[in-house]
Deep mutational scan, measured.
Amino acid sequence: MEQGTVKWFNAEKGFGFIERENGDDVFVHFSAIQGDGFKSLDEGQAVTFDVEEGQRGPQAANVQKA
């Protein structure tokens, strides 16, 4: 798993971006967030995640709040 920081996340649209430790950004969809209840992330929040190849390039999977 990688570690990163939430760059931004739009809860209304259900997606955002995580900044990886290497400085690259990776797309995150709310469906990739682990846990119960409303799935959202806060700007600046530390997270761990896997990276999978999506239809439009790399995207975060198995996102967990650190």
Rank of each mutant, 00 (worst) to 15 (best):
V6M: 04
S40M: 09
G35P: 04
F17E: 03
E12G: 12
G14D: 01
D50Y: 14
G23N: 12
K7Y: 04
G14E: 02
I18Q: 00
Q59I: 09
E43L: 13
G57W: 05
Q3A: 12
P58F: 10
N62G: 05
A66K: 15
D36K: 12
E43R: 15
R56P: 07
F38C: 09
G4L: 01
H29G: 03
K39Q: 09
A60T: 03
G44W: 05
Q45W: 11
D50W: 12
N22G: 12
F9N: 01
S40Q: 09
Q34Y: 10
G35E: 11
K39F: 06
P58W: 10
K65V: 14
Q59L: 06
R20Y: 07
E43K: 15
V51P: 03
G14T: 03
F27A: 02
W8S: 04
K7E: 02
K13G: 05
V51G: 02
T48I: 12
Q34W: 10
G16Q: 00
R56N: 12
S40W: 13
G57Y: 05
Q3K: 15
F30S: 07
I33T: 02
D36H: 12
E43D: 10
N62P: 01
E53V: 14
F38H: 10
M1A: 14
F17W: 08
R20S: 07
G54P: 03
R20I: 07
Q64Y: 09
G54R: 09
F49G: 00
W8P: 00
M1I: 12
V6E: 01
L41P: 02
A61S: 09
E21R: 14
D25E: 09
V47S: 00
R20E: 02
G37A: 06
I18E: 01
Q59T: 08
F9M: 03
I33P: 01
H29A: 03
V26A: 03
G35A: 10
V63S: 00
D36P: 13
F30P: 02
A46S: 12
F17L: 05
A60I: 02
K7G: 04
K39E: 06
L41N: 02
E12N: 13
A66Y: 12
N10G: 04
M1H: 13
E43P: 15
V26E: 00
F38N: 07
N10A: 07
V51Y: 06
F49A: 00
Q3L: 13
D42L: 14
N62K: 07
G37Y: 07
N62L: 05
T48K: 09
Q59R: 12
P58S: 08
E12Q: 14
F27E: 02
A66C: 10
Q34K: 13
K39S: 06
F30Q: 06
N22M: 11
K13L: 12
V63Y: 00
V63A: 03
F17K: 04
M1S: 14
A11N: 11
F49Q: 01
L41A: 03
T5W: 15
D42K: 15
F38W: 15
N22D: 11
K65H: 09
F9I: 04
T5G: 04
V26W: 02
G4V: 00
V63E: 00
R56I: 08
T48L: 12
I33M: 05
L41G: 03
D50L: 11
G14S: 03
F9E: 01
I33N: 02
T5D: 04
G37P: 06
E12T: 14
Q59P: 01
R56D: 09
R56W: 15
F30E: 05
L41F: 05
V47C: 05
F9T: 02
